[in-house]
Amino acid sequence: MEGGLRISEKKYTLLMVDPDAPSCQKPSRAYWKHWLLVDIKGYIMETENVRGFEGTTYTRPTPPQGTGLHHYQFLVFEQPEGQSLSLSPQEKSSLGNWDPQAFVEKFGLARPVASLQFLTQNHKD
């Protein structure tokens, strides 16, 4: 590609968040960060084993009983050319009340290049 990197040479960031923590009616801990994966190489995005640097270790959806449906969102951003994302210890450990928009702005990420959302609830509800 003239004037830019090919997709296989680019890097990406993947976020997984729950904007409904602890419940959709009272999201006082929104956004709950379930996964943050950075520096994903473009050629890896085309495989079944996506990997990069884990800014936050993956935690599966676990909506508390009685809190209704939760929207879980996956967002993929292209990282600016030549940039690696590094997080402070507080950013790595903080899960609830996370501000994904501040993260996006801090690292100059544009609009998501891909997104997915699904709904789930506690299996006892």
Score class of each variant (00 low, 15 high):
41 K>V: 01
29 R>F: 14
44 I>D: 10
22 P>G: 11
20 D>H: 03
38 V>F: 02
27 P>F: 13
41 K>R: 05
25 Q>V: 10
14 L>K: 06
15 L>P: 01
27 P>T: 12
20 D>R: 02
21 A>K: 01
19 P>N: 05
37 L>A: 10
15 L>K: 01
26 K>I: 05
47 T>S: 14
34 H>W: 00
34 H>Q: 01
37 L>D: 10
45 M>A: 06
22 P>D: 10
36 L>V: 02
18 D>G: 09
24 C>R: 11
40 I>D: 06
34 H>F: 03
13 T>C: 15
40 I>E: 09
13 T>R: 09
27 P>Y: 13
20 D>E: 03
42 G>W: 08
49 N>H: 11
33 K>R: 11
40 I>Y: 02
38 V>Y: 07
41 K>E: 15
28 S>D: 14
16 M>P: 00
25 Q>K: 10
51 R>P: 00
25 Q>C: 12
15 L>C: 01
49 N>E: 15
15 L>Y: 01
43 Y>K: 09
33 K>S: 09
27 P>L: 14
31 Y>C: 14
51 R>T: 06
22 P>R: 06
46 E>W: 04
51 R>V: 05
16 M>E: 05
16 M>W: 03
36 L>Y: 00
30 A>V: 04
38 V>A: 13
31 Y>M: 12
46 E>R: 04
25 Q>F: 13
20 D>T: 02
18 D>F: 04
13 T>H: 06
23 S>H: 01
22 P>I: 10
